[in-house]
Design a binder for these strands. Sequence first.
DNA 1: GCCCACGTACTCGGATAAGTGATGTCCGAGTGTAGTCGG
DNA 2: CCGACTACACTCGGACATCACTTATCCGAGTACGTGGGC
Lengths: 159, 159
Amino acid sequence: MKMSEGVEWALHSCVNLAWSGPDRAVSAARLAAWHDLPAAYLNKQLQALARAGIVTSTPGPRGGFRLARPLDAISLMDVVAAVEGPEEAFRCAEIRQQGPGAGAPAAHTADCAIAHAMTRAEMAWRRALAAQNLDEIRQQAERQAPEAPERLRAWLAAR
Amino acid sequence: MKMSEGVEWALHSCVNLAWSGPDRAVSAARLAAWHDLPAAYLNKQLQALARAGIVTSTPGPRGGFRLARPLDAISLMDVVAAVEGPEEAFRCAEIRQQGPGAGAPAAHTADCAIAHAMTRAEMAWRRALAAQNLDEIRQQAERQAPEAPERLRAWLAAR
DNA sequence: GCCCACGTACTCGGATAAGTGATGTCCGAGTGTAGTCGG
DNA sequence: CCGACTACACTCGGACATCACTTATCCGAGTACGTGGGC
């Protein structure tokens, strides 16, 4: 079980967009170059964020992406769901209904105990993701590297 | 992000092994046939459980697998870790250290804020998995289908 | 009748192929800008 | 000099390859049982 790298890219990009400021849109190519990522593929992830309403996109020159709402209104869960899709990691295939082990049909109206337990754990994960918003991430990143926002703005302005 | 189907198979197999009783070993082929699964591939998952010390394997005729310890001493986390591997789903690639965005090396001694947040959520998931043991699963399954254990034992005895 | 050696059938275990989704790349539609031409 | 038109460059957006990992399969090493022969 491996989470897509696009999640990490998308999260960093959101913070970078916040540092860039709401006035100017930043193109996928700029965001990708900042961390030396494949631009076209990062664009794919940003499109997913746009579909989820996390960022807005504007075409044409001076276009690009910008945040659709403040960082503190974007949770980790929002970004993960946008990039990874809304499906659960564990998908019950109902194998208990297959083969000689398939019991009476009445027993299958109730949820599979295993699926229920796995879903419960996954909900804990989702709640933990939803409880953290990107502004907290930004604040911690700025404590570690206070000069980062200004460096990004200067780099963007220089091109 | 998708969890391997082997997890579901392994969990069902553990409960089935418990129902079969500790006296007799059950071969991978029998366990697979019970739910109409590919035998050789289920065998692979059972080998992973054996490496993790969850089940023991005995070769030769009348051989097979049996539980290495009681169900209430096996957590969901044990099985998931055995089948999926111990790695986290989110793996920080440290993209902040790449490209023009790479800050001063000193900033990299601290954990990436994003990785830290993602790990925190994943720990909640792992704790929720570790808090549930397979005996609880078995009890719930027996409430839904009380005849299931006896049906399995009869089916195993008939061959 | 009892014991031992042998062959057989069955098991796990790991090495070896397909299928599917993530990863990466490319080109087209659309848009804002700047330059240019005409009034 | 001012305004409108035109061409261009830059952007997103989705369609098209490539790769890794999951899924699936196969065969070999090892073991217990049953059988046959010898004592």
